[in-house]
């Protein structure tokens, strides 16, 4: 809490009086504010306790058992975790692949989203149409999207035709162990529309006066973008970053529908954490083992998210301090 934030309510109260009463008043106001906070936040707290907390605790317990989801679970202590970390090579492959996927798709998605939002923020004719076209891919059901993506990525498909025009011999994408992850990243970039929606909505909220003033000062549009738009957007960029990390680490359906089957690249090239976990839980009936995977994944995501929050203090520009 900054000094400013602490001082503000005191100033707002502005009741003249001796120091002790002012302090007592401050304290009671603080208590009232805290009460209001818990009152306002109570729907989420209640929902969490009722719908999420029990199942989460249950999965922690299950991760310490050999539960097959049908018969009585046997307690096995940390055995699942030990096996995952020391014996199961797929776990480490999946983790490596997932980090690779996230490390590229998240920043790339953010940059492209920001760039598109900036373009759409201009006074473009038919901007409704452009916005719709860019958001549209996120609406297409996955069965359809996966099917057409397989077609686009065929060795002699349209994407490679396009690359061929530029004189680049295209890879075999989904069949090639080194190109299957970039293929998945491409699919994630195709759905960049939802990040763009938020960035654009936030851009619309930036006071125009800032740009007018910068214009008078002779700042170029590029400069205005970096010194006005981006700083003003940092809370939303930060939101997209954190949600991007959380989402990317849990990538599932795309991997599942694009990389399965005998005619695809070897699995170790594309296996990711949640598809790995899903197989263990619902194809192999190792629910306890799958629960252990999910909690290790939780720790990994938590780690990266905390790093994001740590660095946020340096670059996220809040109108007011929210910490």
């Amino acid at each position: 809490m900054t000094n400013l934030a602490e001082a503000a309510p005191a100033r707002a109260g502005a009741a003249p009086g001796s120091a002790p009463t002012r302090l007592a008043g401050l304290r009671s106001r603080r208590r009232k504010e805290a009460l209001w906070f818990y009152l306002f936040a109570s729907p989420w707290i209640v929902g969490f306790l009722v719908f999420l907390f029990g199942p989460m605790v249950a999965s922690i317990y299950l991760s310490l058992t050999d539960w097959d989801s049908f018969t009585t679970p046997n307690f096995v202590g940390l055995d699942n975790y030990r096996q995952l970390l020391t014996e199961d090579p797929v776990f480490w492959t999946a983790l490596k692949n997932t980090i690779y996927y996230s490390a590229i798709s998240v920043p790339l998605g953010l940059l492209i989203g920001l760039w598109l939002a900036n373009l759409l923020n201009k006074q473009v004719r038919a901007r409704k149409l452009f916005r719709t076209l860019i958001y549209l891919p996120t609406l297409v059901p996955l069965v359809a999207a996966a099917m057409v993506f397989k077609m686009v990525l065929m060795p002699s498909g349209p994407l490679n035709d396009l690359l061929g025009l530029a004189g680049i011999p295209g890879p075999t994408w989904l069949l090639d162990p080194t190109w299957v992850k970039p293929s998945l990243i491409l699919l994630s970039i195709w759905g960049v529309g939802s990040a763009t929606v938020l960035l654009l909505a936030a851009m619309k909220g930036i006071p125009k006066e800032l740009y007018e003033a910068a214009e008078v000062d002779g700042a170029s549009p590029m400069r205005q973008f970096w010194s006005i738009t981006v700083p003003q957007l940092t809370p939303i960029i930060f939101f997209n970053l954190v949600m991007g990390i959380i989402g990317a680490f849990q990538v599932f359906s795309q991997v599942y529908v694009l990389t399965r089957g005998a005619t695809q690249a070897p699995e170790e090239a594309s296996v990711m954490m949640v598809p790995f976990l899903f197989d263990q839980a619902f194809a192999f009936y190792h629910m306890g083992y799958a629960s252990a995977i999910s909690w290790l994944l939780f720790l990994v995501i938590l780690g990266f998210t905390l790093i994001a929050f740590r660095t946020a203090r340096k670059w996220v520009f809040y109108e007011t301090e929210v910490k």
Binding site: F53, P55, A58, I60, S69
Partner: peptide, 18 residues
């Protein structure tokens, strides 16, 4: 309090599945 509630719920779930 939350921990208590959660453990209760979890225990309930396991008993049920068992």
């Amino acid at each position: 309090r939350r921990g208590f509630l959660g453990l209760g719920a979890a225990a309930g779930i396991i008993t049920l599945t068992a």
